[in-house]
């Protein structure tokens, strides 16, 4: 299991408000093998989460060395966040899909949200008001 520390682009802002800074730790499991990479993105709004607009708050690519991954986002202000993950098994930098858009590589969302297909920000959001550890199981 690997630990990754992220200094997001909002780090400087967060330093100004240390009392509102929290850590969000992800424990990601169910990697079927360690080939390829994992892409993890952190979002604080629905538009960036569902891809309709805006940028992820943070995004990271992580090499795998086992069947799970531990990752911490530091210095986040209180608020709602959601996480998207996919396992890029063939290292082509994208989530592979078939001709109708159904993913053919493993993926997951915070709260393990969504029964079938993409989760909504509303279902995947984590309301962060302190340090928090969440577990995500890849589908």
């Amino acid at each position: 299991m690997k630990t990754l520390t992220l200094l997001s682009g909002i780090f400087a802002l967060l330093l100004a408000k240390p009392s509102f800074s929290h850590d969000l730790t992800l424990l990601i499991s169910a990697y079927q093998h360690s080939q390829g990479s994992s892409y993890i993105s952190l979002h604080n709004n629905a538009a960036s989460f569902d891809g309709s607009g805006g940028q992820a708050l943070a995004a990271v690519k992580q090499q795998l060395s086992g069947d799970s991954l531990k990752l911490t986002f530091h210095n986040l202000p209180s608020g709602d966040y959601a996480v998207r993950i996919f396992h890029d098994e063939n290292d082509n930098r994208e989530l592979d899909r078939n001709i109708i858009g159904i993913p053919t590589e493993p993926y997951g969302f915070s709260n393990n949200a969504g029964a079938f297909g993409p989760a909504s920000f509303e279902d995947a959001k984590i309301s962060l008001s302190g340090d928090q550890i969440v577990t995500i199981e890849l589908r």
Binding site: I102, P103, T104, P106, Y107, N112, A115, F116, E137, R139
Partner: peptide
């Protein structure tokens, strides 16, 4: 139930 990756799940 677990979430399905796709229809083949």
């Amino acid at each position: 139930p677990k979430a399905a990756r796709n229809n083949d799940s």
